[in-house]
Design a binder for these strands. Structure first.
Length: 421
RNA sequence: GGGGGAAUGUCCCGAGUGGCAAAGGGGGCGGACUGUAAAUCCGCUGGCUGCGGCCUUCGUAGGUUCGAGUCCUACUUCCCCCA
């Protein structure tokens, strides 16, 4: 099964292959035939453990987008039901169980992201969003066991990585979590029955879970279904991708500002530029090849294109332009811009004087006051561009500009405007 | 059922004669060098602080001791050997 020699005829698989989205396909030739034969329905599942998706989800969202562009129907499956159980894949221990309220709030908060990438509606290739709580919660335990449990052997389940790794790492795997893969498999079956869905996509870690669904479709409904997974996204230096100022790269603007999102892309390593342009923008391949070939400092132009394109897709052209301009002003001219992250403090606090470390902490430049003091001592904290090694130093009205703003920076790239109100 | 081991800084791996805020890595953050890159070198990496200190950490709960990550008891989870 050499995918390298595989020459897909379908538009969708051709794009997937050219742009580097494919890690494994269960039966590439057969899937290719189905895709050239008419409209196909495919789904990706998303759990609701947080109130925002993050960059790790973006690659699969882009796949659904290309899928729709090729004339097919994407389904986004929200794991309202499966999140109650928790996917043990890649986790050393069970996560705290989430309540219905939290799960539903998360689900609502995530929904908006998809509408930026996919066209939803009633047409044949319009995207559909479903929640697996709709069918999973109706199932009774004995019914579940009799209907689906008979199709799974413990012997086989123990061979899947999600289970095997936990056992090998000497970590407990609860019976609750052990059921997760059955639930995901029944999702695939249910979507096959409801929407004629025959393809499930996801990250490479989902391969085992997806294959279970493929087999369940065959055993129970004699439906031929397919699995397609993407490679794990890492940077050229081997890091797992998904870091930005202070943590995960969230897709919701209230968790990571468009400016910081833009910055994350702008700081891509040279060696990743071409790969990321292919995965996270829709620029033509020849244009990407040209950009990725830029040498030396010129490749910074390619990084800006990447940041502009990716930010536009998620947050819109206006937000992307504002982010690009704020970054240009801050880094290329040393000017301030209103689009830089801002933190507000009552003016009278400045008049009384506040410890620099306290402000730096509250404005998000350090995770504690102690850390802010250490940052200052190490020479990484700047007030209005002047290094300040004493975290105890008081900020006063004298530090404010005419506009009532003081610029704080942690390192070269983290800048916050503290505004007196 | 019996016997022997293991759990450490809430990111990970890991050392730890009863005096320990606890060695060393990795990761992360900051500095230098650059191109807002990589590589390299250097520093920091529990919280609060009036900088004199105070508080909270070594699977969980008790106990011994002036003092416990270190000793004792019970419990939880995992590994190995015997049945």
């Amino acid at each position: 099964m050499s995918l390298d020699a595989f020459k897909p005829k379908s538009e969708f698989l051709r794009v997937m292959q050219e742009r580097g989205y494919i890690h494994q396909i269960s039966d590439a030739e057969a899937l290719d035939r189905v895709l050239t034969g008419g409209v196909v329905t495919a789904y990706v599942g998303y759990d609701c453990t947080a109130n925002s998706l993050h960059i790790g989800h973006l690659i699969s969202i882009m796949m659904l987008r290309w899928f729709q562009r090729a004339g097919h129907r994407p389904v986004t499956l929200m794991g309202g039901g499966t999140t109650k159980v928790g996917d043990p894949t890649d986790k050393d221990q069970q996560r705290p169980l989430l309540t219905d309220q939290v799960i539903n709030a998360n689900l609502a908060s995530i929904k908006g992201t998809f509408s930026r990438f996919l066209r939803f509606g009633e047409g044949p290739a319009d995207a559909v969003m479903v929640n697996n709580a709709d069918w999973l919660e109706k199932l009774g335990y004995v019914e579940f066991l009799r209907e689906f449990g008979v199709h799974f052997t413990i012997n086989r389940m123990l061979t899947f990585d999600s289970v095997k790794l936990r056992l090998e790492r000497e970590q407990p795997l609860s019976f609750l979590e052990f059921n997760y893969m059955l639930m995901q498999a029944t999702d695939f079956l249910e979507l096959g029955r409801r929407y004629g869905c025959t393809l499930q996509m996801g990250g490479s870690d989902q391969w085992g879970n997806i294959i279970n669904g493929v087999e369940l479709n065959r055993r129970m409904d004699s439906r031929q279904a397919f699995a397609l997974t993407t490679p794990l996204l890492t940077t050229a230096s081997g890091e797992k991708m998904g870091k930005s100022v202070g943590g995960a790269v969230w897709l919701n603007a209230d968790r990571l500002s468009p400016y910081d999102y833009w910055q994350m892309w702008r700081n891509t390593e040279d060696a990743d530029v071409g790969r990321f342009l292919k995965l996270f923008t829709e620029l033509p391949l020849d244009e990407i090849a040209r950009l990725a070939a830029l040498g030396g400092a010129e490749i910074n132009e390619a990084k800006k294109v990447l940041a502009n394109e990716a930010t536009t897709m998620l947050h819109g052209a206006d937000a992307a332009r504002a982010a690009a301009e704020a970054a240009r002003a801050a880094f290329e001219e040393g000017r301030l811009s209103d689009d830089l992250p801002t933190y507000e403090i009552p003016r009278r606090v400045f008049e009384a004087g506040v410890a620099l470390a306290a402000v730096a902490h509250e404005a998000g430049l350090a995770s504690s006051r102690s850390e802010a003091r250490r940052l200052a001592q190490g020479g990484g904290l700047r007030v209005n561009d002047a290094p300040e090694t004493d975290g105890q130093r008081l900020l006063t009205a004298a530090d404010l500009s005419a506009d009532g703003v003081v610029k704080l920076a942690a390192g070269r790239k983290k800048i916050v405007l503290v505004r007196a109100i």
